[in-house]
Nucleic acid binder design. Structure first.
Lengths: 262, 262
DNA sequence: GCCCCAAACAACGA
DNA sequence: CTCGTTGTTTGGGG
């Protein structure tokens, strides 16, 4: 559920709370949600401390000073919790809990048990949408490279660009004035460039809004400020009717004013 | 273009004209349309004679007395020609010509050069629609085995049943009263059995009609007797309006009276 | 709303 | 109207 901007702010806030604090104990409660044995995970972390915590695509990367690291993907309903009191893991479908020397506890849990952890992960080849690797030439090659693909399906494809989810995708397309029904090969090159700019702009705009509305957030999403992908709205600020429809297998919010290239 | 019934009659007629006649010369004109070298093809046939010629799926199988055999698939526009005078192969995009001792010549040609020959072919595992292997239990398992597949796509899939093409498929579904838009998993079992019977019945009906209308046919199709897949008709004999529409990626003729299971 | 996989479908060329 | 290949979409499960 959280997308790039949410996770970006989570990472900032997790850094503030957890960096450079010694991890004195690690418990795991769901072996299948971690790609290595509980033992290897616990041993790789215990006694060390986080040197960095960053957002990368739809994941958060926890980097230890000892060179180990792990990615957490929250999937649909995973959450981070930082607290000073220990809560029964069974009550909240906890996956793991890390105990720090100052008595704070980081828990990762998921009521649907879909969240997952990759310890010492393989390198992510696909660029994050706000990373330097996500250049315009790269994006252009993506769009031109698959001539008859639905544009929304492309933007959502984590094998092409990492970090954009269903909600921000609709906002990006709205801002760019491009219909989610458009086909890659039919979008003129200048529109592709505009779209590229709107990807970055919209995600940064999301980050700013989330930080403003909920500066300390480490789980849940803030979506109230959305202009189209917003179930509380019937019209955009500009007065355009918002249409809700299944497009590219996803619930999609858009307006008739967005140009359809097909 | 020709489907099982056409090819069945072609095979009968080719047998009448060619069986047990010595092949004294073989010429090939399109090496890429044969799966072996021209040399191997020529050598495997020359001096021998056809012991049998049979229809199998959408192909004709030529069996030589020496144990060799080859399949011919006419694809969209391939044709057999039997004549006593030799025609310049370049004029008719000839693929091969077989010369018999009695001066008859069998030519296989295709203006689109899509027809193909498989010499000493691998065994066809999938049953021909009129073969013994195409049993009701087999058909039932096909339909139930892929729960949400378009029924027309299934009937046309040569990896499931061999011999049914677009035209006879429409006739079969019309006779069975099943809409080409139906989904496999939604068809009740008694309808599946009816459909099975109509497959055999419709193909045999096709053979009878072709033999009656054009007893000596070895190329081209006879389609005038079709009840729905017939561009000259606006209504069936029973007065049902004929709808023409793209279904399962094929031009499809059907009526609203055919029940849609979906 | 997430990702993965398998199955089905669509477009193109030969 | 044929087949095969390739790329894309869809549906189900975790």
């Amino acid at each position: 559920m959280p997308e790039l901007p949410d996770l970006y702010v989570y990472a900032e806030n997790l850094r503030k709370q957890l960096l450079n604090k010694k991890i004195i104990e690690v418990k795991t409660f769901a072996a299948k949600k971690i790609n290595v044995s509980p033992q290897a995970f616990v041993d790789g972390i215990t006694g060390d401390y986080f040197a960095d915590i960053t957002q990368d695509g739809k994941e958060i990367k926890f980097s230890l000073s000892n060179g180990n690291s792990f990615y957490v993907h929250l999937m649909l309903s995973g959450i981070f919790t930082v607290s000073s009191k220990y809560i029964d893991p069974n009550l909240f479908n906890k996956i793991t809990a890390l105990f720090f020397e100052d008595e704070t506890i980081l828990s990762i849990s998921d009521r649907q048990m879909m969240a997952k952890i990759e310890f010492n992960p393989k390198v992510r080849q696909v660029p994050d949408a706000l990373s330097e690797g996500f250049t315009y030439p790269y994006f252009l090659s993506l769009v031109l490279g698959s001539s008859r693909r639905n544009i929304k399906a492309l933007l959502l494809d984590q094998k092409c660009i990492r970090g954009i989810g269903n909600a921000y995708c609709d906002e990006i397309l709205y801002n760019a004035g491009v219909s989610p029904k458009s086909i890659t090969g039919k979008i003129p090159e200048e529109k592709i460039e505009e779209l590229y700019e709107h990807i970055k702009e919209t995600l940064l705009w999301g980050i700013e809004n989330i930080k403003y509305i909920s500066p300390n957030i480490i789980s849940g999403e803030i979506r109230d400020f959305f202009n189209v992908h917003n179930k509380r709205l019937r019209k955009t600020k500009k007065g355009e009717m918002i249409i809700v429809e299944q497009i590219a297998s996803k619930k999609t919010y858009y307006t008739r004013q967005q140009e359809v290239y097909e």
